[in-house]
């Protein structure tokens, strides 16, 4: 098999992916009254990416041969897909949804920045515990649970920064701190994976070569277990972190773009004011 044959033959149309994607689309359509806008383009591209990440060769390779493929899928599902979905929700729809008692309450608890931060960073750390990751690879149900949790937790993580309702968002400078510290969390994990010796995740060390592509991977592509793990760790570390940074730049750009909320508006300000005093 050459690389193109691998890429064309390892698509895996899992029903749960297609069903969940369809359900999301229908729910979104019902919520927005099936009107196509810029926002729905974002939402739909989120759904497409979600499906691609889970049915394409990325999924197959990540579950069998390559840790690096798993990591790309992981970053897509935890950071990119939820962001697109969240950005695609119109404000009116979100406001309507939040008025429904249980949803509003749940988002109030989970959308708390501290909770959301620990969920978002925790999802990365916990699911990458080596023993847990190996059991995920061995069990289909656990695997499905993991993928769904990525998307759900990713949405919760982005909520304090990009919630469709502005009042639920953190202020831009606090968002920057929120994202930079999350980037730090993901950097440290990426570093650990990158610099740990090969075989941190035992399953990728000697995969069962069901479709006979191991020689291709190890030989022609030079993806030895060590290199594969390094690519994985670095993908989390560098591009993963850049997503957080890009997001914080978006919040800052938004901040400068927005109208200034003049603190002066209700004081008579043509007069001189007293300078702030230190607490000596």
């Amino acid at each position: 098999m050459n690389i193109w044959q691998v890429l064309s033959s390892t698509w895996n149309m899992e029903p749960w992916v297609l069903v969940s994607a369809l359900l999301l689309l229908v729910a979104y359509g019902l919520g927005t009254g099936f009107k196509f806008t810029k926002l729905s383009a974002l939402f739909i591209s989120g759904i497409i990416l979600y499906v691609l990440a889970l049915v394409s060769p990325l999924d197959y390779l990540g579950r069998t041969y390559l840790f690096s493929a798993h990591m790309i899928q992981h970053i897509l599902l935890l950071l990119v897909v939820p962001l697109l979905l969240l950005l695609g929700i119109p404000k009116a729809l979100a406001e309507k949804a939040l008025k429904i008692e249980p949803i509003g309450y749940v988002m109030k608890v989970l959308g708390n920045p501290i909770v959301a931060w620990f969920l978002g960073v925790g999802a990365m750390w916990v699911w990458h515990l080596p023993s847990l990751h190996d059991s995920v690879l061995a069990s289909d149900n656990l695997y499905i649970a993991q993928q769904i949790s990525f998307v759900l937790i990713g949405t919760i993580f982005w909520w304090p920064v990009f919630a469709p309702v502005e009042t639920k968002r953190l202020s831009p400078l606090v968002s920057t701190l929120y994202l930079a510290s999350a980037c730090l969390g993901c950097t440290i994990l990426g570093m650990l994976i990158t610099f740990a010796g090969a075989g941190l995740y035992a399953a990728y060390l000697n995969p069962v070569d069901t479709i006979g592509i191991l020689p291709l991977i190890r030989g022609e592509l030079c993806l030895t277990p060590g290199v594969d793990q390094q690519i994985g760790g670095l993908t989390m570390w560098v591009p993963g972190c850049l997503i957080y940074l890009a997001a914080s730049m978006v919040t800052i750009a938004r901040w400068y773009g927005a109208e200034e909320d003049y603190e002066l508006s209700n004081s008579s300000t043509n007069e001189l004011v007293t300078a702030s005093q230190g607490n000596k």
């Binding site: 930079a180 290199v227 570390w237 940074l245 750009a253």
Partner: peptide, 26 residues
């Protein structure tokens, strides 16, 4: 704004001082 970007990026690129160490091509 770009100052913030520089500050944040600067935290994550130190390994370019170590290209000759042998961290690996990737």
């Amino acid at each position: 704004g770009s100052t913030v970007a520089i500050g944040l990026l600067s935290l994550g690129v130190w390994a370019h001082h170590m290209f000759a160490v042998g961290l690996g091509n990737v």
